[in-house]
Design a protein around this nucleic acid. Structure first.
Lengths: 343, 343
DNA sequence: ATGAAAGCGCTAACAC
DNA sequence: GTGTTAGCGCTTTCAT
């Protein structure tokens, strides 16, 4: 460890500094730096030169307070390790890039109270809009959202009541659709494998949809297995081994996400289990990872990128629908049978 | 699509509203809400009640301007899809949580100009510190960093000159160490597989370290293969097939990350190639995913969580070293031979 | 323990 | 095309 001198703490530069250095009024300097209003080319160049040589960085805090405008969009997601949310974030970033708005991300770790506090923290910066995952929030959070006076988009899930706008898929219907595909392929002893997270409402709704769909075929779920923490791929292997040991007559396994599904697939292949003849498999999300697996896991695309893009369009007020609030946009996930469901 | 009425846009509440509702001066209300200074229990409760019933959310913009203090830490990372950075972010969040500081994340997509603009944007919010990845920046970015007058931590890599503090591993040394392990295991025809990204300096340094280490054993790299975009797992398969077709005599493949390494491993296993007898494999990062693979890929832990935690400690001024700036902390990645290097 | 006044650095609105 | 004035909603400082 070296003891290099810490950079000297100078007073940060202000508009006034640029104004004095360039001999132009603060107001005109401000106009140049925001490219707003008419400024002669001469003054403009003088100002920019001064700003650049001084190394001036505008103070958005003061600017935001004065203009009552903040170019920030609060984006609140459950987790970063899920692979699902980074893609939603990418969609949001893509659209906002062209609008002068900037996303700011907060993570809740699937905890409602944490969502509430992150939301509070973010609202206190007076963002131009909020995008958050799901429709389930604490009462206080819901109240903050309704009172915020800015566009709110609840993303990912449409099964429930929205505060303002909502963009997503119906996870219930996704589960139902999967049940139909499973039954159509002739499977009848179905097991479900998922996360233990009580607040993963979307996984829960998929399970409910699945059971509803199976019930329509006169079938009930034969077994289920849950996990928490650790490497999802490894957990997928372990859970699959466990559930098959416990219920050897299962002929289909529905996983709450592709990662554990991939683990299950690898396990079955190694154990010499005939997939999809003896056992069928399906996951959920349509993650890119599946492309590299020995066999294509059946899955359902969660429309992550599209959801992110649409949410951002609504916040930015550039959604093709032209509507400005209270939108409900339901996307349709496509079922990909892959190589793990009998045809 | 329904046409629900958008929530009415009211003037956001201010301290004055709480003051009037509670009959307490703005100043005292402010003190209560920040729990600063002495306030009688009676007034305190009256204020809190009023604030809660109104649903008041403080305006941090005004607060920050007045107090000249912002509890934000700018965190600038290259990518979200890399799996590496989310873990660094987690480490940062863990530590900052206890300090009243809040991370704000920006993504550069490995583009220096984008890093510069994200940095500019973030500095204009006057954060309390900056954490960014790597030591390579544009001149303008470097100047902004030195002029910012706040603690700066460059994370991930220590091979170079830092602006202020630096926390990370030596990727050059990591490559070197891997070369030694490869040679010690008796491999001699080595191939490198990596990303095409010109700005992935850490992968580049690992490659340089590898070549240096091989040179010490009198060996030069036999072949190399690069990719960009797409599913890393799939690319790993494809590249492995391609490089082995082109250079069938290769007996070791060093991958610039675990994801493509995992793809390579899956390919070799399916192709019936004896690993690690006929061909040895190694990746880099020590990602959790490897735990679920059929065989344990050799890798090197990049100390991601620890790097994040340490960086945050420096920014928060709570690092055990007690130093306040200009720190240089080099962590030592551990080599895990797994099952893909001969012993 | 509480309040009054000043001002943080910028921009809206208006003059010139 | 450019300058002046008056705040934005808080917190600092100083009185009481």
């Amino acid at each position: 460890m070296t003891l290099a001198p810490r950079p000297e703490i100078r007073r940060p530069l202000t508009l006034r500094d640029v104004s004095e250095a360039s001999g132009v009024s603060e107001m005109t300097v401000s106009r140049v730096l925001r490219s707003r209003g008419d400024v002669s080319e001469t003054t403009r160049e003088r100002v920019l030169l001064a700003a650049r040589t001084l190394g001036y960085v505008p103070n958005k805090i003061a600017g935001a307070l004065a203009s009552q405008r903040v170019n920030l969009v609060a984006v609140i997601i459950p987790s970063l390790s899920n692979m699902v949310y980074p893609e939603v974030m990418t969609g949001i970033s893509q659209v906002l890039e062209d609008t002068g708005l900037q996303p700011v991300f907060g993570v809740t770790h699937y905890l409602p109270e944490r969502e509430e506090s992150v939301l509070y923290e973010m609202l206190s910066w007076r963002p131009s809009g909020v995008i958050l995952a799901g429709l389930e929030h604490t009462d206080a959070a819901r109240q903050m959202l309704s009172n915020a006076g800015i566009p709110i988009v609840e993303a990912m899930d449409v099964d429930g009541v929205a505060v303002d706008s909502v963009v997503g898929i119906s996870h219930r219907r996704a589960g139902l659709k999967m049940a139909e595909a499973i039954l159509a392929a002739g499977y009848s002893r179905i097991g479900f494998l998922g996360t233990m997270m009580p607040y993963d409402h979307r996984a829960r709704k998929r399970l409910e949809g699945l059971e509803e769909g199976l019930a329509q075929g006169g079938i009930t779920l034969a077994d289920r297995e849950f996990y928490s923490g650790g490497s999802a791929l490894l957990k997928g292997r372990e859970m699959t081994q466990a559930i098959l040991a416990r219920s050897p007559d299962l002929d289909f396994l529905y996983y709450s996400n592709d990662m554990i599904g991939a683990g299950g697939l690898l396990y079955c292949l190694e154990a010499g289990i005939d997939v999809p003849g003896r056992v069928g498999l399906a996951g959920f999300n349509g993650v890119e990872l599946l492309d590299g697996l020995p066999r294509r896991l059946a899955t359902m695309d969660a429309c992550r990128l599209e959801i992110g893009r649409t949410a951002a369009q609504i916040i930015a007020g550039v959604h093709p629908s032209g509507l400005i609030g209270g939108e409900r946009i339901e996307l349709s996930p496509t079922l990909e049978l892959g190589d793990t469901i009998r045809r």
